[in-house]
Nucleic acid binder design. Structure first.
Lengths: 223, 223
DNA sequence: CGTGGTTTGCCATGCAGGCGACAATGAGAC
DNA sequence: GTCTCATTGTCGCCTGCATGGCAAACCACG
């Protein structure tokens, strides 16, 4: 099995596809690799869909007052880009790699669109994947709008640990590529507040934290 | 042209469909009507997709502390329900009619799924409609998370007026079916704050407001 | 017409968290 | 090592908004 197949399967995009359908799908995918700081995607550029294979990518946009808002931290298996094939993207979202390196697949929207049109099962897989993404997004935003800063920060950590955490006994470790200021931009608060709360949590023994990684009790994931 | 066709066309779901495809689509749609206060949809019930034809519907959920959060105010042309065909809805969203009466179309997810699978053009229309919806959602939430209460309230009014407002010279009027407390639940603030801000706006001459309708300068829509 | 329930208006209090300023620490470049 | 820039830590002030409580206005209905 060639590697593309492997990841497509792992990330639930090729479920129930026939061998030839899979080949077709692989045919319109090209694999790319990039390093920290590179911008792989900016609204306005050619319409494309991305599937992250390894690394971390931040999906962000800059608002009118010049502040960066991080909308999402994409991890392996996540889709991003012009997910709904539409021409009319009015916002100015972009995707920047924040891990040392990242590997990702790229599909042109047009090709994907026509392939999906002729491959019902792919449509189902795709729609369910995109649907999941939006459901998560909705939940996350609902949370962000209603909760205080500490809860929001913990929510981020949990989501993140669930997708990308490594178990070490009853502790969970996540590799950290974000500064306090990045975290602040994710939960839309100020850098200072993040610092304070992080130290509170450290104080309370809930997490331990340095520039390389964040570690906390796996119990925290429970709720 | 039978009425279903008319609305499907008006709401961009039947663009570029052949006559027979259109008939097939109409075949799986049933039209319903309901009155204020009725709940047309609750997560956990049979999976269905709704298209609102007339009236207003609030899409909401109740959080763990018992407060209602209004996620969206659906207006004619809006889709809601199990839009991405998935079984796994873990949240407890519901849809309640808040206009005197409402007319809407209902489609079972399974039938819609198989029809879409065999009708590429329908897939495109559908995906683009759902995509638009999510894009709006994302923008709205971004706004909600980052802005203060007054901006959020105005944002709501604008969105609402854009979709449902009636022009009267340089003024725009929207019919109001919401209490201050509903407005508060939409932008996640307190009832009192809504009251205060509404009066501020009234004072400043930006809007005029009573229980039946809200009216403001069409200039407000510009930005 | 009054009467009870809902919606709106207003006030006092308290606090979370934004923001500016500046110091301390760390990390890479030379 | 030292220099420099980015990141983190801490403080104080101040404002936006939540919250509770209560009065006034409005509405539906017998």
């Amino acid at each position: 099995m060639e590697p593309k197949n492997f990841y497509l399967k792992a990330f639930n995009l090729s479920t129930n596809l026939s061998e030839t359908q899979l080949q077709d799908l692989c045919g319109i995918i090209s694999q790319k690799e990039a390093k920290r700081g590179q911008v792989v995607y900016a609204k306005g550029s050619e319409k494309r869909i991305f599937l992250l294979i390894s690394g971390k990518v931040k999906i962000a946009e800059v608002n009118e007052s010049g502040d960066e808002m991080i909308k999402e931290l994409a991890l392996p298996g996540d889709l991003f880009g012009d997910l709904h094939f539409s021409r009319e993207g009015v916002n100015c979202e972009y995707a920047e790699i924040i891990s040392e390196r990242a590997i990702y697949y790229v599909m042109e929207v047009d090709k994907m669109n026509s392939l999906i049109s002729t491959t019902p099962m792919l449509m189902t897989n795709y729609l369910s994947k995109v649907g999941m993404k939006y459901q998560n997004m909705e939940n996350r935003y609902m949370f962000m709008v209603t909760k205080d800063v500490k809860s929001r920060l913990l929510y981020c950590f949990k989501e993140w640990a669930r997708k990308d955490g490594k178990r070490l006994g009853d502790r969970v470790v996540i590799k950290n590529s974000l500064t306090h200021s990045d975290l602040a931009n994710m939960i839309s608060t100020s850098r200072q507040t993040v610092t304070v709360i992080l130290n509170e949590l450290k104080e309370a023994g809930a997490i331990s934290y340095n520039r390389k990684e964040i570690e906390f009790s796996s119990m925290m994931l429970a709720n």
